[in-house]
Design a protein around this nucleic acid. Structure first.
Lengths: 273, 273
DNA sequence: TTTCTTCTTATGGTATGATGATAAGATTGT
DNA sequence: ACAATCTTATCATCATACCATAAGAAGAAA
């Protein structure tokens, strides 16, 4: 049983000393990532980060609810919501009379945006980017094939529109990144396979999170549209194999671009965040 | 704003009329899926089923917390935990002052075991099985390639052991299905790509859930070991391409087997569940 | 000593009621 | 008509209490 934190003094006092006030309004009292709205979400983030950073290892027990309340200075309801949240992400498992235990890594839902961003902030790792692109190379070429072969004309129209959006936003870097995601998602949606959509959405969020880590979207170098155009034309022509190959190529270029941006960002600026 | 349920009378009275007793012990009072331990999990399942069955459409608001308490005869804490759970699965989004709204289908985490089983129980659809196998065909052959090319000898040993387990359990149908999953998971683990592991775990759970729907594991016909042996030997020989092709073949056979079992089950026994 | 039973305790699950903050809608004054 | 204000609906949080039960401790019997 691993126990952390000096007994008594909260590691992170989210709520301050005053006890009997509504808490939502005290958001301004702690600067710690005030973009997260609720306290339970913040507690979840803190505990989650401590788990993915390895401070709690698989099989370890978390402190009991009452201790967590003390540590973070919040009520039991809040802690319970946070814990439930982490359990839903399969980071922990909570059983009556036995406490809250960290699950083995293999159980973690790494596709969860929160889990991903916690992992990135705990220790940024190019490996995570590589893994993401490995997954994309598995799914997106196939999705492209299916979109070309069995997508409806409405699907194709939407893909075309997303491409047009991309073109029109080419100069505004942050918008372009979003438009690019939408292009990919439109292709995936054209497969009409819900699981593809789920995985695609997770990957999109994951990439966005990793971009925001490097604080720059693809290092400002303008995107080369040619590979996208190749994908688009192959899909519209309903040439499955060509679409598949074009997407494979696109992803490879994209991967290189992102890794280059990461490397570039790594050498200037002494680290991550 | 969509409101369902006749105001006042609970649709499902989970807790009964008595109000001031601990509730866990009253599990025996309702037969409704008593395998689920906590009430909040049951409430989540009921609401989740109503969502995936289309009773609430995307954009609709769920009844407010107080109404849900009444409908299901549980306290607000319980309802809140259930709602949080559904939000973690991206079925709904809850915002202060605006209530709880159903998210568009594209946001749902279809890889979540609960979501999958709710979908299956709401309306069993061969399509879901097809989608699952489409996903498997995307990433398992690639995982096989990577396992063959870059797996450690420990990884390979573990794969070999899982295969041996499969062989030894060949006659006990329920165990064999589990052993087969473990074989696949061992291959996926050998890629050392966490995302593959996450997706693989979800797919495994999903298949298990769909099997339990048909109440028979692969219709009792004994599994043909040859394709598995082909995969194993290719991996151990570190022949990536051959391993990839062998897995592709294996999955295709497996898919046919499962669909046949589903069809078989469909014609006798007038439906699902 | 060993084993079985019983008691205690630690721990999560649930209930209840109250307060706070605020977005959305209703009301009112100009 | 429009803008400012008030009210309400609704979730977020807190505090406290009780219950059920798994695990562990203590004691009794063989």
């Amino acid at each position: 049983m691993l126990r952390i934190g000096l007994a008594g003094q909260p590691l992170f006092d989210l709520a301050g000393a005053a006890s009997t006030m509504g808490a939502l309004g005290k958001r301004h009292m702690f600067e710690r990532d005030s973009t997260i709205s609720t306290m339970s979400a913040q507690v979840a983030r803190i505990i989650g980060t401590r788990i993915v950073s390895g401070e709690f290892g698989p099989g370890d027990s978390l402190p009991i609810e009452a201790e967590l309340c003390q540590e973070y200075g919040v009520s039991r309801s809040t802690v319970r919501e946070a814990v439930k949240n982490l359990a839903a992400k399969r980071l922990i498992e909570v059983a009556p009379k036995v406490g809250t235990r960290v699950l083995p890594f293999a159980d973690w839902n790494l596709l969860d945006p929160d889990v991903l961003s916690w992992r990135l902030s705990a220790q940024f790792d190019e490996r995570i980017i590589e893994d993401l692109y490995e997954v994309r190379q598995c799914f997106e070429p196939r999705a492209c094939y299916l979109a070309a072969r069995s997508g409806t004309t409405e699907d194709h129209d939407r893909i075309r529109r997303r491409y047009a959006d991309m073109v029109s936003m080419l100069d505004q870097a942050p918008l372009a990144a979003g438009a690019e995601s939408e292009f990919h998602l439109a292709i995936i949606a054209a497969t009409h396979n819900g699981l593809f959509v789920t995985i695609g959405g997770a990957v999109k969020t994951a990439l966005k999170a990793s971009f925001s880590m490097t604080q720059k979207d693809a290092s400002g170098t303008p995107i080369d549209l040619a590979p996208y155009e190749a994908v688009l034309s192959a899909i519209l022509a309903r040439e499955g194999e060509r679409a598949e190959a074009a997407m494979r190529c696109l992803l490879d270029l994209s991967r290189q671009r992102v890794l280059a941006a990461v490397a570039h960002h790594r050498e200037r600026g002494r680290g991550w965040r």
